[in-house]
Amino acid sequence: MRIGNHTYKVDYGHLIFLTAIGGYVTWYLTNTMSVSTHVNNILLVAPVSVFALLMLLCVVPQCIQRADAAEEQAKPEQYDPLSPKLPTERRQVARMLMLGGALGVFVFSLAVIGFDVAIFLFALAAMAICGERRPHHLVPFAAIIAVVLVYGFKALMPYPMPTFFL
């Protein structure tokens, strides 16, 4: 993007994220106000929501950087566990996203296909994503995980756990 003499780089992903956050906060605020405008309801929520939206407006300009400035920033930094960085290499990112996706399928399938089956399938997928390809390692290990964890958790917690086989 060019404005005047400078080339600007826009981080669209960040803008979309900010829009989502802004959308949620605005919705939450209007939802709260529609329930009641009594002080007992909005004492903290209203000011904090407004504050969040103000901060959001301050962050928006940070999504747009001058191209030369953007390059300057991309220097290696020391690892800080409190502000972790995602891996940048394409293969690593792909692995991570696949694992995240598998986790999503896993949590939504738990109640439908039973915890035992879901754990077995997820363990299989997760190991494969992490690089294990030998079937004679994958299948028994996933089965062991499923059996041990299902029985273990059944013994540990006072809740029923829907399972298919176990």
Partner: peptide, 13 residues
């Protein structure tokens, strides 16, 4: 590759 699936399943359970 062995411990991560276990950690993730344990965390989910």
């Amino acid at each position: 590759r062995y411990i991560l699936p276990v950690i993730l399943v344990v965390a989910t359970l």
